[in-house]
C-alpha cells in the first residue's frame, strides 16, 4: 500500500513531475486497513496539510467498499478506482456515487494469475495510470524494477509488470 504510493511518486520523479507520497501517520498493523496518499503535479506546489478532498480514490481491498471512510471527502468530480470482481454500477450504487465516477478492475484476479498471489497493490497502479494518465506507464514499470527488483527477483518482477500491464489495458478497454 505504502509501497504503491512510493512507486507512483518514483514514477512521477522519472516523469520530472512534482510529487509527495506519505502514509497515514501512525503505527501500522498487519491486516488493519491502511491509507496512503499522493500529490502529483507538473508544477511545484507547497502544501503540507493532510488530504481530505482527494481527486482520485483507489480502493485496493474490496472488503472496504462498504466502509464509510472510503468515500469521505469524495466530491462529484473525484474519480473512484476500485479492485472488485463486480461491475462499476453496483459498486457506485452501494457507495452512493455516480456510476460515471467509478472504475472497477478485478486486480485480485489479475494478481493471482500473474504474480500467483492475491497481492493486488501493483496491479492497481496499472488501473490508476490507465484512468488518470498522471504518469506514463513505462515510468511506473521502470520504477518498480529499480525499487523492488532486488527484493522480489526477476521472476516475480516480471509477474508484477504483467499485472500492471493487464490492469492498465483492462481498465482502458472499458
Amino acid at each position: 500500500m505504502v509501497t504503491a504510493a512510493r512507486l507512483l511518486a518514483g514514477a512521477a520523479l522519472r516523469a520530472d513531475k512534482y510529487f509527495q507520497a506519505f502514509p497515514e501517520f501512525g503505527p501500522e498493523r498487519m491486516g488493519a486497513p491502511i491509507v496512503a496518499f499522493n500529490r502529483i503535479s507538473s508544477r511545484p506546489f507547497s502544501n503540507y496539510s493532510q488530504i481530505s478532498n482527494p481527486d482520485v480514490v483507489v480502493v485496493i481491498d474490496p472488503t472496504l467498499l462498504g466502509a464509510e471512510a472510503v468515500i469521505a471527502g469524495v466530491g462529484e468530480d473525484a474519480i473512484f478506482i476500485a479492485n472488485s470482481s463486480e461491475e462499476a454500477r453496483p459498486v457506485a450504487g452501494r457507495l452512493g456515487l455516480e456510476p460515471g465516477q467509478v472504475y472497477v478492475v478485478d486486480a485480485s484476479r489479475i494478481a493471482r494469475e500473474t504474480i500467483g498471489r492475491d497481492i493486488p497493490n501493483t496491479a492497481m497502479l496499472g488501473g490508476v495510470v490507465g484512468i488518470t494518465e498522471i504518469v506514463p506507464l513505462d515510468d511506473v514499470i521502470e520504477e518498480l524494477k529499480e525499487l523492488m527488483g532486488e527484493k522480489l527477483g526477476s521472476e516475480r518482477i516480471e509477474g508484477n509488470i504483467e499485472a500492471i500491464r493487464r490492469t492498465f489495458e483492462t481498465i482502458r478497454a472499458r
Partner: peptide, 9 residues
C-alpha cells in the same frame, strides 16, 4: 511524520 515520513523531491 509530516516531513519525516513524507516523500518529496
Amino acid at each position: 511524520f509530516i516531513i519525516s515520513h513524507l516523500l518529496e523531491r
